[in-house]
Nucleic acid binder design. Structure first.
Lengths: 206, 206
DNA sequence: CCTTTTATCTTGACACTGTCAAGATGGCTG
DNA sequence: CAGCCATCTTGACAGTGTCAAGATAAAAGG
């Protein structure tokens, strides 16, 4: 009942601002993300965020980093629930990839939307956070692709092919089908597309 | 010499605003695109654009539409310079796709970045323009993919697979390799990736 | 030729944004 | 207890999109 509205020290403002930003984006699209609105939603003055993020781009980067964390976790969950053979593992990760893009479309769009950030204008915490979470996500995909890289070839080639495929596919659903390169009528399920690659494990013969 | 600065009637303000917007975006990134700056660059008062675009989203949509036009033209040029067999035609279109994404990276990123637009807030001219140019682009890809769709299957399946692949690949280069899902070291050329699909024409046997 | 209409642009204003500077608050270390 | 320092507030500024009202000039109609 002691309703002192603001204890002056929020306690965990940085975190609160990130989740406020996520909420705002899910509710009103990317342009609804605003420093002042985040501050208000966190119950804090309009200039408070400046002490945790060196500007709006840094807050955006932190949100993207948070998105990567959720993204990686989704893929891990799907992977854990699948069989252990390489095909099933890769398919599971792709399913997780696409599932995340549907469930958290706003964040997903925002994550892979090319911002002006990534410059050196980010505060160090956010920059390292972003780097860490994004490489963690990529490594999950990388591990799943490794069994399919033909011997004597750069595994990156296979990674990029699969990554391109699933990412491009996920991106197709991000536009409301009215503008942009909207595909014709119905889009086949990804489970019908991945097998077209006819992937073979490199150690299957051994 | 009769330097009357503004003839009050610009003559072709809509067009001038679009190219101004394209320039601004190439120079300073997506966030540098501003109604007022476009107006100033076109030599016009800050509220003039409102008479040609019903708000900033519409101007953005018009710029995207212009991007699609250049995009389609690039693919047509590449296609025209290639051999006439289906493999070469498809490869050429993919090369054009990727070439455009490199040469006009700012616009390319902007085109495929999910905006809040596409809503019904667009003025009719811009909306139909956008729809027209984007479907024209997709049809080019569609035609090139058609020969490879296995009979008795929905050709959309093959289109989407190839589209996903080339689009995802092109997207990989849009981030300055510091943030986002940056791939490891070196990225193989797309000419090494497309053949992995081992595409066969459906009428080759006939 | 003159008048009326209409498209086009200007001016001014408003609320909102990000960002900076300066001060207030309160927990922490010494 | 004193002082420090991270944290937050207040106030201000330039820049933004958007709206309303008026000015301008080209076109249309007699």
């Amino acid at each position: 009942m002691t309703d002192q509205p603001r204890p002056h020290h929020h306690g965990n403002l940085r975190e609160a601002l990130i989740v406020a930003g996520l909420e705002l984006m899910e509710e009103g699209g990317p342009d609804a993300l605003t420093l002042r609105k985040c501050a208000k939603r966190a119950g804090v003055s309009h200039a408070a965020p400046a002490h945790h993020f060196n500007g709006l781009p840094s807050l955006k980067a932190a949100i993207v980093a948070r998105g990567y964390r959720m993204f990686a976790q989704t893929m891990r969950d799907y992977r854990a629930a699948a069989k252990s053979d390489p095909q099933a593992q890769l398919a599971a990760i792709c399913d997780g990839y696409i599932a995340f893009s549907r469930q958290h479309m706003a964040v997903f769009k925002f994550m892979f939307q090319p911002h002006d950030l990534a410059n050196e204008t980010l505060d160090k915490t956010t920059a390292t956070e972003l780097k860490h979470e994004s490489t963690a996500s990529y490594q999950i995909l990388q591990q799943a692709c490794a069994p399919f890289a033909p011997e004597k070839t750069d595994p990156a080639s296979m990674e990029i092919m699969i990554w391109s495929l699933v990412h491009g596919y996920a991106m197709l659903f991000c536009n409301p089908c009215e503008n942009g390169l909207s595909p014709p009528q119905t889009i086949p399920d990804f489970s019908q597309i991945l097998p077209k690659l006819k992937l073979k494990t490199n150690s299957a013969r051994k």
